[in-house]
């Protein structure tokens, strides 16, 4: 399986999608829509970062397993 079949989609997904995610995080933090001084809001920062890493990890794991099963 070539690069375009395995890791390229992953890099594109979390590269372009990652830009959208980071811009979104920066915007909500800079506009005070999410205030890290609020205890309740601070927890959401962790949830948002966890969500991104959760999906990236899950996709990476399955790509790794698929390559390993060749």
């Amino acid at each position: 399986m070539d690069f375009a079949r395995t890791w390229l989609p992953f890099l594109y997904l979390y590269g372009v999608g990652g830009i959208a995610f980071v811009l979104g995080m920066v915007l909500i933090l800079r506009t005070n829509a999410l205030r890290t001084t609020f205890h309740r809001h601070k927890k959401w920062v962790y949830v948002l970062l966890y969500g991104f890493l959760f999906y990236a990890g899950l996709h990476a794991l399955f790509i790794y397993l698929a390559i390993g099963s060749q």
Binding site: M1, A4, R5, T6, L8, P9, F10, Y12, L13, V16, G17, L58, H59, F62, I63, L65, A66, I67, S69, Q70
Partner: peptide, 26 residues
Amino acid sequence: PEQKLPLAHFNHPPDFNFVGIFWQDG
């Protein structure tokens, strides 16, 4: 092994490829 991959081929075939579906759906 191809069927175990969680993401489609980057740009092939025309009716099911990663980059097109990323922009259309993602």
